Computed example of a mutant assay.
Amino acid sequence: MTTAHTPPGTTTGSATEARLLLVEDDEVIRNTVRMALERYGFTVYTAADGLTGLEVFREQRPDLLLLDVMLPELDGIGLCRRVRELSLAPILMLSARGDSLDVIAGLEAGADDYVVKPCESAVIVARIRSLLRRASFAPVGPDTGGGPATAPGAEAAQDIEPELLCFGDLTIDPRGMEVRRAGEPLALTPTELRMLLEFAASPGVVLERRTLLSRVWDHAWQGDTRVVDLHVQRLRAKIGAERIETVRGFGYKLRR
C-alpha cells in the first residue's frame, strides 16, 4: 500500500480537496500519473494490485477511483464490481486499447467512464473533473461511499421544475436528487442520475448519443458511443426497460 501524496506546490483548478485512488501495476505509469495529478492539486493514494486497491479503498474512501483493467491479484473489472457493492463513488477505467472488450466489461461492471492509455494528463484531469461534477449532483449518504459533498448540486435541478416528476411508477425529485420506483428508493450512480435528469427534462424528446455525451459526460466523444449505450442499459435495469425507448439511428427518449 502506498500512502497518500500531497501536492508539492501551487495547486491548479478547483478540485484541490478531492482524494483519488489510482490502482496501476506498472510502476512507471503509476508514478507518472500520480505526479501529474498532484500538480493539479489532487491528493492521490496508489496501489499496485487489485486486492491492495480494495483495501486502500475501504480504509480511505476516496472521492474517485482510477483503475487499470489488467491488474494482478484482482483485475480492474473484478475490483470495479467489488467497489460497486460498497459505494457509488465515480470510477474511471484505464485501458490499453479503446476497442477492447475490457472497456465494455468495465462499463458493465459499473465504471462511469474510461480513457485509453497512453493519454495526456490534461485529458485524464478533464475526465476526473467531469466525474466529480456529476458526483456533486448526487446525494451522499451512508450507502454512497465516497464522493464530494452535494451542496453545489442544487443548480443542476434549476432547468427542471422542482415538483416531483412522475412517469408511471417512476417518481423523480429533481431538487432532492431522489428517484423512486413503486415507492422504493433507487440507488443510482451519479452518471445514471444525471442521465435520467436529462431524459426527464425533455420527456418524449429523442436525445442523440452525442448530445448525451456532451451533457452527461461534459465532453464531445471522438470515438464510439458504447459508453452511452451501456449506461442506458444499466439505467433501464433499474427504472424499467420500457421507460427508455430506443429510436434506431438517432438515440433514446424517455416515454411520457
Rank of each mutant, 00 (worst) to 15 (best):
192 E>N: 05
109 A>R: 05
229 D>V: 09
209 R>S: 15
7 P>K: 06
52 T>M: 05
185 P>Q: 05
69 V>A: 13
256 R>C: 14
72 P>F: 09
186 L>C: 13
53 G>E: 01
161 E>W: 09
34 R>L: 10
53 G>D: 01
121 S>L: 12
63 D>C: 02
84 R>V: 06
115 V>Y: 04
197 L>R: 03
145 G>H: 00
33 V>M: 12
254 L>Q: 07
10 T>S: 15
118 P>R: 10
172 I>A: 05
180 R>G: 13
155 E>Y: 14
38 E>K: 08
242 E>F: 11
172 I>T: 07
162 P>E: 05
180 R>T: 15
251 G>M: 06
154 A>R: 13
97 R>M: 10
190 P>M: 07
107 L>A: 01
37 L>T: 08
185 P>W: 07
96 A>N: 08
219 H>R: 13
106 G>P: 02
27 E>L: 14
213 L>M: 15
179 V>Q: 11
134 R>S: 15
90 P>S: 06
139 P>R: 13
192 E>R: 03
204 G>V: 08
236 R>M: 14
236 R>C: 14
131 L>A: 08
251 G>W: 08
222 Q>K: 10
23 V>T: 00
47 A>D: 04
79 L>W: 01
209 R>I: 06
228 V>H: 07
78 G>S: 04
249 G>K: 09
13 G>P: 07
46 T>Q: 10
147 G>S: 02
175 R>T: 14
112 D>N: 11
164 L>C: 05
103 V>M: 05
88 L>K: 06
217 W>H: 12
240 G>L: 09
199 F>W: 06
217 W>G: 04
15 A>H: 14
12 T>P: 08
82 R>D: 12
246 T>W: 08
208 E>L: 11
53 G>H: 02
233 Q>L: 14
39 R>N: 11
114 Y>F: 15
116 V>N: 00
10 T>Q: 15
106 G>M: 07
60 Q>A: 15
82 R>N: 09
136 S>H: 02
216 V>R: 01
82 R>A: 15
22 L>Y: 00
107 L>G: 01
166 C>H: 11
207 L>G: 08
188 L>H: 06
121 S>R: 12
47 A>V: 02
110 G>W: 04
206 V>R: 05
143 D>N: 06
212 L>S: 05
191 T>P: 03
180 R>M: 15
118 P>K: 05
23 V>Y: 01
112 D>L: 08
31 N>D: 15
131 L>V: 09
167 F>I: 07
223 G>F: 09
15 A>M: 13
83 V>C: 07
2 T>W: 10
102 D>E: 12
159 D>N: 13
44 V>Y: 02
147 G>P: 01
85 E>L: 11
47 A>C: 06
162 P>T: 04
140 V>P: 02
81 R>P: 04
255 R>P: 02
64 L>G: 09
